[in-house]
Amino acid sequence: MTPTKEEEYSQQEAQLDDLYREVILDHYRNPRYRGSLPAPTVSREGYNPLCGDEVTLDVTAKDGVVVEVAFRGSGCSISQSSASMMTEAIMGKTVQQVESLFKGFTAMMQGSEDIDLESLGDLEALAGVRKFPVRVKCATLAWHTLQEALQALEEGKG
């Protein structure tokens, strides 16, 4: 049985919907915590040379808790919505919680089976990106920038 035109069309749509889940498009159109902080504890820039995606992340931490966060940048919907979703996910969390989110998220993007997707909340929406290998780096850009920011925090460097 060859699929009808309509069925074929909906297959394409279904695959695209895996990549561009509604929550992702929502963050792309209405980014959370977009902007910059006047005096962040750390600020780090990330760049993906393949796509030209750019993300700058400002984080202010007090007593081991992320109390302020902001990002800015330009790039594809996946890179920018991932950054927005990440800021929302880490706001108000302890550095330890943020580190465990980072581990969970990168494990998910690497296709690991052994992760608790529920613990990732909305971030789970980005799991569909795994089916589009060239786009995985777009989704992880903000997180690798965050990792650098966390390292700087631990080393006490602004």
Binding site: Q15, L16, Y20, C51, C76, S77, I78, R135, C138
Partner: peptide, 11 residues
């Protein structure tokens, strides 16, 4: 973004 356009076109 051109990558978003490219991904839809690819499909």
């Amino acid at each position: 973004h051109p990558h978003d356009v490219g991904t839809v076109l690819d499909r």
